[in-house]
Amino acid sequence: MKNSRRSFLKIAGISAIGFSMTPVVNVFASSGQEGNKPEPSYSVNKKALKAKRWGLVIDTRKLSEEIVEELGKTCSKIHNIPEIKNKDHEIKWIWGEEFKHAFPGKENEFLDERMKHLSMPVLCNHCKDAPCVRVCPTKATFKRPDGIVLMDFHRCIGCRFCMAACPYGSRSFNFIDPRTVLPKDRKEWNLEFPTRMKGVVEKCNFCAERLAVGKTPACVEASHGALAFGDLEDPKSEVRKLLKSNYTIRRKPSLGTGPSVYYIV
């Protein structure tokens, strides 16, 4: 009796380890022979905007407090971002910061009055080598071939490693259920974009859902020409033309993350 129970437990234990190890073993075993997997099929909207690496150029000369506020409001509206009173639990995709906070370490002792008080729009930089993507233990945050760093809200386990890794404070966590804070009337929600559940991280997605149907990001549309969006790898693109003819800065380029958001100052 004792022996059979013991051997049963042994086998059960080994099987449990075996089953839980399978996906881990698979990832090592399958590397290099991806060809065996069936390709998923999907159709692409013909109007979809494409690029090798999307980037954003912000012309701070054309900005005003009102425009920056409008950027945030437009973004919140179409992405169902709730307005949370408690500052600690805020969800922010694009918002205004003073120069010294947007560019810490770059603040000069004597900064011109306009810059000193200007509200700088800050958002996810969709880094070339994004630390958040590197640290995510489930690939819930990942980089698309066109450079956009995206979130899979259904895979995120809410460990917030990506928030610790992001040097730009661009990520927000749903400390509470965001649906309880969104407008009561669901007609005010944008039903073409998912709402989120509590316990997952979110951030700016460069309006990937709009690019897929041929629209530019909402903030670019709302910016009165202050924001330009385009392909950083295409020398003929509008963003490259702007970068060629204007002096620009990026946030914390010394960290090597390769931000794709440029600021004309």
């Binding site: 408690n86 500052k87 600690d88 639990h89 805020e90 922010k92 809410g158 928030m163 404070g169 927000s172 966590f173 749903n174 400390f175 509470i176 259920d177 509590k198 316990g199």
Partner: peptide, 10 residues
């Protein structure tokens, strides 16, 4: 309720 019951923040 969510992790909002803790003192953690953005």
């Amino acid at each position: 309720v969510g992790l909002g019951i803790t003192g953690m923040s953005r």
